[in-house]
Write a protein that binds this DNA or RNA. Structure first.
Lengths: 344, 344
DNA sequence: ATGAAAGCGCTAACAC
DNA sequence: GTGTTAGCGCTTTCAT
């Protein structure tokens, strides 16, 4: 008998008050159908009167679960992936979790050492599931998760054959729509600035560009032309470099589709420096990962991703995976939207 | 005897392997000095061999603590407080927590109902401490935290007499520096766009403005003049409205200090619409809560807040409060920096 | 349908 | 110093 008692009512006290056994109280709390209405009512009354709140730690210990999921954010990416992405995703996750009593753990992973530590966490089953954002092709975490049979959902995928559940934006479709838009407006030399080719998202957006170009038939000066493709790295400086390259290779360019709005910002700066009017001389459409496009130039057309919805969907999918014991992989691709804010 | 055993080694197995009792293992894990070097070595070896990781739930249950802290974010604010603030704070907290084995719980609070639910969490002692951002004057949470004697740290304060621990930026000093800068550059009619007067941060920035104006003596056309003070609400539209008002009241304004960069953006738009050149005709300095200033106009001077450091400091202060049992309140004010990016 | 009882893995008090 | 033991509050058989 020690004085550790926290002062909060326990399940046992509820049972006493309701005049039932602890097992019954537990069943009521967990919504078991095997309780009489009478007992259920008594228990619920007792819970309300006592202001009983189950002890999470005890539950976790006895039930071998944690009622918590982790959102893993590779630190280097939090800067690159511009900020609204980050908070939109979190908002979405939060919205989905609101009615649950799942908790959201935020895990920033900066170094391999921290990754190792997180792997320990996972192995020790300290969370019921994991949400991963900005996953790189060579990220070891998804495979680890799979080995551990830990429910997990990625935002984006590592490749076409992604084996782990994921929620992704329709990058191909978004890019295609953007380029088709430019072509429909009469642009005849549409270039593109891509992301690093080892990122699936970059390849997808390039695919979309290519599809639109190839579908254009005679609407363009040429078919798919590698001279109109410049490689960026999703940074503004990368966008600048790519734009300069493009202007050297094809000075007559009259439109650019950038695989990210940050690169679009870089491209825009270069275009202006070289005396081109944007969007009149050279129209610019970017994939909107951040809100930079909006702030930089509220009139710029861009491909909007449903970031918050991605967050919601990720959480929903993860909860489903946790609920069923089997690991059925789910793949969800959400539509993007071409937000036309200019009259190019 | 049931098959629930998770497969992970337990403290007991470590004890067996090391040839000591469970108590000793526990002492080693928790860094108690009351263990012989011999025993300690044996235990550590066993831990390494078995790959033992303590079970958090069991620890929490037995030790009546959770090794987790919550970061509470009032949902309505996440949009208002522009995004980089948010991720910088989190980055800072994460950095500070990295060497700890504290977990960070993210709690979005959207509605009074959710707040009530969170209060339950707190009462049930599901976290060891709480970090609060963007606290309003009438927010009931800080007082609740105090009643519960739950360690807590705010970012910002509700008033001069804040009773809960807080970490804040030097709003008065930052504003004063900004206005002094404008005056030093020869501006003679410096206006200000404030935030809502029921927010301490807004009042502080106005105080700084006032101090600088009053210190300027003959450097300005007039002393502190309420006609040069327009009220905004930290939104861009609010900045616009305030700027229009100011131009009606004092068309000769040649400088504006905005209490946030979002409002500065609004003001800038209005200035340009009315044919003023920025910064030549009217110089603009804003408090940089977001990175909007940087993106919108990389050359704009602004008052930079050490957001990431605020996050780190908040976490550090909270950990200290948790470590000592007494609740000593700490108040930390971090310096801001005037980042001069133009030559106004 | 429900009470009793056996743990879940750990901490901390207690004895030696 | 170290082993032993009694819980922490809950879930989950197992009887009944």
């Amino acid at each position: 008998m020690n004085g550790r008692h926290s002062g909060r009512p326990t399940l046992e006290e509820v049972a006493l008050r309701a005049g039932v056994g602890r097992g019954t109280v537990s069943r009521v709390i967990n919504g078991s159908p095997r309780v009489s209405d009478r007992a259920k009512a008594a228990v619920e009354a007792a819970i309300a009167e006592l202001g009983y709140v189950p002890n999470r730690a005890a539950r976790a210990l006895a039930g071998n679960r944690t009622d918590a999921i982790a959102l893993v954010i590779p630190e280097p990416e939090t800067r690159l992936f511009a900020e609204p992405y980050f908070s939109d995703i979190i908002r979405g996750i939060g919205a989905e979790l609101a009615d649950t009593d799942m908790q959201l753990l935020l895990t920033l992973i900066r170094t391999p050492k921290e990754r190792a530590r997180f792997a320990q966490y996972l192995a020790a089953h300290r969370v019921d599931g994991v949400l991963l954002v900005s996953v790189h092709e060579d990220d070891p975490l998804p495979d680890l998760l799979e080995q551990l049979e830990m429910p997990a959902v990625l935002n984006g995928r590592r490749s076409d054959l992604e084996s782990v559940s994921y929620v992704d934006a329709d990058n191909v479709g978004g890019a295609r729509a953007a380029v088709a838009h430019l072509i429909a407006r009469g642009r005849r030399q549409v270039a593109t600035i891509t992301g690093p080719p080892d990122m699936y998202v970059a390849r997808s957006r390039l695919d979309g560009y290519r599809q639109a170009v190839e579908a254009a038939a005679g609407g363009l000066d040429s078919g798919f032309d590698t001279a109109l493709v410049a490689r960026g790295d999703f940074t503004e400086e990368g966008g600048r470099r790519a734009m300069r390259e493009l202007l050297v290779r094809r000075p007559g360019i009259d439109a650019v589709f950038a695989a990210s709005d940050v690169m679009a910002a870089g491209a825009r700066a270069v275009l202006r420096e070289t005396g081109r009017r944007v969007p009149d001389d050279v129209a610019l459409v970017g994939f909107e990962d951040s809100a930079i496009a909006r702030h930089m130039d509220p009139a710029l057309t861009s491909v909007r991703q449903p970031t918050e919805e991605m967050g919601r969907t990720m959480a929903r999918v993860l909860l489903e995976e946790i609920a069923e014991r089997e690991s059925v992989r789910r793949h969800v691709v959400l539509a993007t939207e071409l937000v036309q804010r200019d009259s190019v």
